[in-house]
């Protein structure tokens, strides 16, 4: 194979890594916000499926993919609201509620989407090269020859980073997850804020699911996320709750499958079981490295993660 041939394969793998990583990235950004506020939501897979099915149904009916994205935002947020009510107001176990949400979302999405299986999407999201940017050698085809939902993450990720680390409400968000009592005494409305971030997390997970049904696969099939929600949960830990790292991680996680398939075509067989466990191995490695450097560091994990807040039990 010639040199250009090899670059082409590399470009293809990396471009696929970006599109395959995007649904995971949306879901992970949502979970990141939720966890930053001190609530863990393991219902990502369920929220993604609800987002995928409601987005697809709406886009079919209105013949407009953006209507589908709006519906996915609403539906994902609505499902997350159940989790918020159960864990924030009723202070139930967050892990149990999240798992229930996944089972609920899987069943409900299958039920709702029944008559939409096999329908074509009238107007799916398609690749739109970004003018000059798409002509940059190597980077152009890798990053700037995708659909609008991919470009949206290029804005969303830095925006979230600035919000979390450089802005006042972002500081409050971090305080919520680290020490809600302190945040409370600063005048942060703990319950209301946590509700907001849990719902926002659900909305982003919904968009992540809708990316699969509106852009990546464009179609609806039961259980089409096939475990990507769980990868997103692992990705949040891999990223140490930092949106920029989440983006890099999403592309690594998304690129693993693409890499495996492309290598097969070139005649290189990597055992699939090995590839499938890579995201989790990476996550463990990151934790080991970070903890190895500084044992007292908490790896960026919010201190009050998973603990319900009760004003009277300080």
């Amino acid at each position: 194979m010639t040199d250009t041939g090899q670059t082409n394969v590399l470009v293809l793998i990396l471009a696929t890594a970006v599109t395959a990583g995007t649904p995971i990235l949306y879901a992970a950004l949502g979970e990141l916000l939720t966890e930053r506020s001190g609530v863990i939501n393991l219902g990502v897979e369920g929220m993604m499926l609800i987002g995928a099915v409601s987005g697809f149904m709406t886009a079919v009916v209105f013949k407009n993919p953006w209507a589908g994205v709006a519906a996915a935002l609403l539906a994902g947020g609505a499902v997350a609201l159940i989790h918020a009510f159960l864990t924030i107001t009723l202070r139930t176990n967050q892990v149990v509620s999240g798992l229930a949400l996944t089972i609920f979302g899987t069943g409900l999405s299958g039920y709702l989407g029944k008559s939409f299986i096999g329908l074509p999407l009238p107007v799916p999201f398609t690749s739109r090269p970004l003018g000059m940017l798409s002509e940059i050698p190597f980077f152009g085809p890798v990053f700037f020859n995708h659909d609008p939902l991919v470009y949206l993450t290029y804005l969303l990720v830095p925006a979230l980073w600035v919000f979390i680390y450089k802005m006042r409400p972002g500081m409050h968000l971090r305080a919520l997850g680290e020490n809600p009592s302190a945040a409370d005494s600063l005048g942060v409305k703990v319950f209301l804020s946590r509700y907001m971030y849990v719902v926002a997390g659900g909305m982003l997970a919904g968009v992540g699911g809708a990316y699969l049904s509106l852009a990546y696969a464009p179609s609806w099939l039961e259980n089409m996320t096939a475990g990507r929600g769980w990868i997103a949960v692992a990705l949040v830990i891999f990223a140490l709750w930092n949106p920029l790292r989440a983006m890099v991680g999403a592309y690594i996680f998304g690129g693993i499958d693409a890499l495996g398939l492309r290598l097969q075509v070139l005649g290189v067989m990597i055992p699939s079981f090995f590839l499938q466990m890579m995201p989790y191995i990476f996550t463990i490695l990151v934790l080991v490295v970070v903890l190895g450097k500084n044992r007292s560091a908490r790896t960026g994990s919010p201190g009050a993660l998973g603990i319900p807040f009760d004003r009277e039990e300080r």
Binding site: Y216, A226, D257, L261
Partner: peptide
Amino acid sequence: YDPAKEKEA
């Protein structure tokens, strides 16, 4: 059964 991955293949 993984529509996205099978499409990628």
